[in-house]
């Protein structure tokens, strides 16, 4: 039942080739793991940078909101005083009370300079929403006031981290199989090597897909 010399040599050569393949696969797995870790750290940095930018924009917007509100309130308050005095003047003029009407008109004039009159609608009412929008837009022209794009970028980076984590798990799962294949022989070795090899290929594809 002893095998002939040629068969023993052939089996030994096959074993050496598989051992070499397993060693290469293990090295590639390590390389792939390192690449995944690098991409993860890059995605994490991108997420952190975006979140910090979003936080800065949030603070700036809160400051701008107070500034805008003060401006709108001041203008609307002046408009109320103006409108009352102005309407009083018109009413009294119509009633023939020109002396009192002039007094009211002078009161109206005192408030006029404090009104951003472009926000007075044709019917005489004050368009608060338009004033707020425009003032905020003006503030935004010099400062980053919108945290939403930054937070969206941070969320996208987090999504990439999740996908990289999945490929990382797949990559790591090849290690035990390749290790078993390395320390065993026969069918066990071949089975572990095949499954480990398949996992390696799949994890490589997932990682490349995530990267791209």
């Amino acid at each position: 039942m002893h095998l002939g010399p040629s068969v023993t040599v052939e089996s030994s050569r096959n074993s050496d080739r598989l051992g070499l393949l397993l060693a290469i696969l293990l090295a590639l797995t390590g390389l792939l793991g390192a690449l995944t870790a690098w991409r993860l750290s890059e995605a994490d940095r991108a997420s952190g940078d975006a979140a910090r930018a979003g936080l800065a924009a949030t603070r700036e917007r809160a400051r701008a909101a107070l500034t805008v509100e003060a401006e709108v309130t001041q203008s609307q308050s002046a408009w109320l005083h103006y409108e009352l005095a102005h309407r009083r003047a018109e009413d009294l003029t119509a009633a023939g009370q020109s002396v009192e009407a002039l007094r009211a008109a002078k009161e109206a004039a005192a408030s006029w300079g404090f009104i951003q009159s472009q926000y007075i609608r044709p019917d005489g009412t004050y368009d608060v929403a338009a004033h707020r929008r425009a003032s905020l837009a003006q503030q935004a022209s010099g400062h980053d006031l919108d945290p939403a794009p930054h937070f969206a970028a941070a969320t996208a980076a987090d999504d990439e981290k999740h996908q990289l984590a999945l490929s990382g798990i797949l990559i790591a799962s090849t290690l035990p199989l390749l290790a078993i294949a390395t320390v065993t022989g026969g069918r066990t070795r071949r089975f572990a090597a095949v499954i480990g090899g398949i996992l390696f290929v799949v994890s490589t594809i997932v990682m490349v897909a995530t990267w791209l």
């Binding site: 107070l66 937070f151 969320t155």
Partner: peptide, 21 residues
């Protein structure tokens, strides 16, 4: 945790704007 903090930041901004308005 970072994502939840971003949600908290967004809510804090909403609150500031709601308070100011």
């Amino acid at each position: 945790s970072a994502a939840a903090e971003r949600q908290a930041d967004a809510a804090a901004l909403q609150r500031s704007e709601a308070d100011a308005g």
